[in-house]
Simulated scan of single mutants.
Amino acid sequence: MTSTSGVGAGTTAAANSNTNNPGSTVDYDTFLKLLVTQLKNQDPTSPMETTQYMAQLASFSQVEQTIQTNNKLDEILTSSAIGQANELIGHTVTSPDGSTTGTVSSVRITSNGLVANLDDGTEMLIGAGVTVA
């Protein structure tokens, strides 16, 4: 089941994702520390070119931005699902084959999508072909 507590929480840095699973990701500060250590320990007779460092920094920055974008998209999708769930309550839904019909009393958000709990106790996955009246 998808948790809705994070909707609107507004994560602003990739470091926030580190609190969910520390050790699995490297934040921007850690990357900079590694870069400085790499500079200190490089072979003075064959130093790495500045363009290589800049490429590493740009790559890490791009990955960090992608992570932040994915987090925001997850928040938007969850918020959208909550809005859709709210609109279904009290409406009559019919399965694509017409075998199940009932009034929606509550809705759960799962990884598969919205699951409507009908007034007779049955559950129906809301997907393609379901009729809402």
Rank of each mutant, 00 (worst) to 15 (best):
S46R: 04
S59G: 13
P22Y: 12
Q38M: 15
F31K: 01
Y28K: 00
T30C: 07
T30H: 02
V36T: 13
F60H: 01
D43C: 09
S17Q: 04
L32R: 10
V36G: 03
N16A: 06
V36W: 15
T50E: 12
P44G: 08
T37Q: 15
G23C: 06
M48A: 09
T25H: 08
S17G: 10
K40Y: 15
T50V: 04
T50A: 10
G23M: 04
N16T: 13
S24F: 03
T66Y: 10
L57Y: 03
K40A: 08
Q42A: 05
N20D: 02
M48N: 07
S17L: 15
P44Y: 13
S24Y: 08
N41T: 04
Q52P: 03
Q52C: 08
L34Q: 12
K40R: 15
N20H: 09
A15F: 15
A14N: 10
L39F: 15
G23T: 02
N18I: 10
F31Y: 02
P47H: 00
L35H: 10
L34V: 09
S17Y: 14
Q38D: 14
S59Q: 11
T45C: 06
V26W: 00
S17T: 03
Y28Q: 01
A58M: 02
T51I: 09
Q65N: 10
N41Q: 10
G23F: 07
P44W: 14
T30A: 07
E49G: 06
N20M: 07
P44N: 10
M48I: 08
I67M: 06
T30W: 05
T66Q: 05
Y28V: 05
S46H: 13
T37G: 06
L35Q: 13
T45S: 12
Q52N: 03
S46E: 03
V26H: 00
K33A: 07
Y53M: 04
S17R: 09
T51Y: 02
D27E: 05
E64W: 08
L39V: 12
L39K: 13
F31M: 01
V36I: 15
T66N: 11
Q52D: 10
N18Y: 07
L57Q: 00
M48E: 03
T50H: 11
Q42L: 11
A13V: 12
T30L: 04
T30D: 06
M48D: 04
L32S: 04
T25P: 01
A55Y: 03
M54H: 01
T45L: 12
A55F: 08
Q56S: 02
N16C: 05
L57S: 01
F60K: 00
Q56A: 00
V63L: 06
A55S: 06
T30N: 03
L57F: 05
Q62R: 09
T25S: 07
F31N: 01
N41Y: 07
F31H: 01
L34H: 13
L35T: 02
L32I: 15
N18Q: 14
T66F: 14
A14G: 13
N21P: 00
Q56G: 02
A55R: 01
I67Q: 00
T50R: 08
N16Y: 05
T25Q: 05
N20F: 04
Q38A: 14
L35E: 12
G23P: 00
Q62Y: 14
T37R: 14
P44D: 10
N18A: 11
L35N: 09
D27M: 01
Q65K: 12
Q62D: 11
